[in-house]
Nucleic acid binder design. Structure first.
Length: 419
RNA sequence: GUGGCCGUAGCUCAGUUGGUUAGAGCGCCAGGUUGUGGCCCUGGAGGUCGGGGGUUCGAGUCCCCUCGGUCACCCCA
């Protein structure tokens, strides 16, 4: 059968019971972020195009060819957010909260790309941003937070890649050294980069083609060109990570696709994922971004983790299974439904989760539904119970059998049984 | 944006070199037990074979287009 409409390409519907994992994942992240002093921030799903164009960088793929742009009815040029950081920074500048400003978020982001395993046009992220401090310990805290979250889900086969991109002082020096180097060997680059390596020399280091890798292997590293402050910062970050025993791999060639990164950058790869999209999260410092968007000079760092990819990684590692039902009671009524209505609502008012069957089905059919609902007990009302003012309390998850109790004592009895 | 593979019940899939009314398992519903779930047995519902066009006496099967999925490039979460 082909439905008249289906979810747009690159988007997905998340239905129960799968959606329970999403709730649990976001809950988990909220807990980890909350206990580190990060508060929830909610920003609009769309912003003026310029927020992203100036924030993420005009030349990046994300901005130049992947944004969902539209003109609103007032003629304003808007874009669905392709990432969160620019929006959060915009809000920071707008409200000027006291620093350090530590926030976490979750929600959808949009990029018009060709869908693929672990890559969607609407995808979802959880993340944090910490603004107002350039202390290396903030870098460490942020990385540790991500790491703790992954571990809390049960993921173990992760690799933390780390690099420093330097700052406005030392990056230009490195860049010119890299340009000199690539210029001397441009003929050896892959067909794609041979003529265009100057557009973004850093990209060449990340190219997966044999030719480029061979050249990149001998290329100068940013790490060797760090100025003293950046070098000190880098050293302190590594020291901090060692002090709290978070394993990392220095990847001098780690280049991230957004223009705003400075100094510390990192990426977390799920080695259990056999796909090309194995990055389950990434982030780094963006000490110049607040200023670039019109705010006061404000160092900052943050990360975003992809919910879809994290769940794929959890599948690959066989962890973080969907939680079972939390339903306490299921009401079975074969007298017409009035008792089911009264009892389920009474239970819910009392804070006890309860569900029921609809459709005047047979006792047997309703009990089957009760069983599949995962409820701990079934409360059965037949003609005899209705006449006597009682209900049968039947245990579904143990062999305690069933007992007849007073209709008026249902709530108190379930309270003591279920805690 | 480029290329490879795929698209048959709600789900996972069969379907001989094109050949009558398109099947199975699981799930769902009902009955076996006129008051009792899980196990078992029986039956039932459910498909314009992704959509459109073409070739053919005849298309689930071949061709084209299109939509969607998937994998890789690219990029990233």
């Amino acid at each position: 059968m082909s439905p008249s409409f289906q979810a747009p390409a690159g988007t997905r519907d998340v239905l129960p019971p799968e959606s329970a994992r999403w709730e649990a994942l976001v809950d988990c992240f909220a807990r980890v972020a909350g206990q580190a002093g990060y508060g929830l921030v909610l920003t609009p799903l769309f912003e003026e195009v310029e927020v992203f164009a100036r924030g993420v960088g005009e030349s990046t793929d994300v901005v130049s060819r992947e944004m969902y742009e539209f003109e609103d009815r007032g003629g304003r040029r808007m874009a669905l957010r392709p990432e969160f950081t620019a929006s959060v920074v915009r809000a920071f500048i707008q409200y000027r909260p006291t620093t350090p400003w530590k926030v976490w978020y979750w929600g959808p982001a949009f990029r018009y790309e060709r869908p693929q395993a672990g890559r969607y046009r609407q995808f979802h992220q959880v993340g944090v941003e910490g603004l107002g401090s350039d202390e290396p310990h903030l870098d460490v805290e942020v990385v540790a937070l991500a790491w703790r979250f992954y571990r809390a889900l049960g993921l173990t086969r992760l690799r933390l890649d780390l690099n420093s991109l330097g700052d406005g002082v030392c990056r230009p020096a490195y860049r010119s050294a890299l340009v000199d180097f690539l210029g001397s060997r441009s003929a050896e680059l892959c067909s794609e980069h041979r003529d265009r390596w100057q557009l973004n020399p850093l990209r060449v280091l990340d190219c997966k083609k044999e030719e480029c890798r061979a050249v990149a292997a001998g290329a100068p590293h940013q790490l060797d060109y760090l100025c003293q402050p950046c070098s000190d910062h880098w050293g302190a970050v590594l020291e901090g990570l060692q002090a709290i025993k978070i394993p990392y791999v220095v990847q001098p060639r780690l280049v991230r696709g957004l223009d705003y990164y400075t100094r510390t950058t990192f990426e977390v790869a799920a080695e259990a994922l056999g796909t090309a999209q194995d990055a389950v999260g990434g982030g780094g410092r963006y000490d110049g971004l607040v200023e670039a968007l019109g705010g006061p000079p404000t160092p900052a760092i943050g990360f975003s983790l992809g919910i879809e990819r994290i769940l794929l990684a959890c599948d690959a590692e066989g962890v973080f299974a969907s939680a079972g039902s939390e339903l306490a009671a299921f009401v079975v009524d074969v007298t017409g439904g009035a008792a089911a209505l009264a009892i389920t609502e009474e239970l819910r008012e009392a804070g006890i989760s309860a569900d029921r069957a609809f459709g005047r089905r047979s006792l047997r059919a309703q009990l089957r539904t009760a069983d599949r609902s995962g409820a701990a007990v079934a409360l059965i009302v037949g003609p005899e119970e209705a006449a006597a003012g009682t209900v049968q309390l039947r245990w579904l998850r143990s062999d305690r059998g069933q007992e007849e109790i007073d209709r008026a004592k249902v709530v108190s009895r379930l309270r003591e049984e279920l805690g």
